Lab assay of single mutants.
Amino acid sequence: TYVQALFDFDPQEDGELGFRRGDFIHVMDNSDPNWWKGACHGQTGMFPRNYVTPVN
């Protein structure tokens, strides 16, 4: 499953995934309602669910 970033996200903690608005992120785990795990630009980490939108 892929999502697209609605906003820039700069990691604040180790293990978070940084990205820029418009980036596509491969979702690896969406079991938590607020923080998902994904991959983008060769990196993996957690990111806030409300920063992304589903891609059809």
Results as ranks from 00 to 15, higher is better:
T44S: 08
V27W: 01
G42V: 02
K37I: 11
N30S: 14
G45R: 03
H41C: 09
P33I: 08
D10K: 13
S31R: 08
V27P: 01
G18E: 14
H26S: 12
N50K: 14
H41Q: 11
A39S: 15
Y51T: 05
W35A: 04
L17E: 01
V27Q: 02
N30M: 13
D23K: 00
D32S: 08
Y2A: 04
E13F: 10
S31F: 04
D29C: 07
N56V: 14
L17N: 02
F9L: 08
E16M: 15
Y2N: 10
T53V: 09
P48L: 07
Q43H: 15
Y2C: 08
F19H: 01
I25W: 01
Y51P: 01
H41K: 10
P33Q: 10
P54V: 09
P11H: 06
F9E: 03
R21M: 11
R21A: 13
D23F: 03
Q4D: 00
R49E: 05
V52N: 02
N56G: 14
V3R: 03
D10N: 15
V52D: 00
L17G: 02
V52Q: 00
F9I: 04
A39N: 10
H26N: 14
G38F: 00
A39I: 07
G38A: 02
D29G: 05
F47Q: 01
N34R: 14
V3H: 07
T44M: 09
R21H: 14
L6G: 05
G45T: 01
H41L: 07
G42D: 09
P54A: 13
P48T: 02
T44Y: 12
R21L: 06
A39E: 15
P11S: 10
L6S: 07
M28W: 10
D32Q: 10
A39V: 14
L17V: 06
V27I: 10
V52S: 04
V3C: 15
W36R: 01
C40E: 01
D8Y: 01
F19G: 02
Y51V: 10
P48Q: 04
A39P: 00
D23A: 05
H41V: 03
L17C: 03
G18L: 10
F9C: 05
N34F: 11
V55F: 11
G22T: 03
F9P: 03
Q4L: 09
N34A: 13
D10M: 13
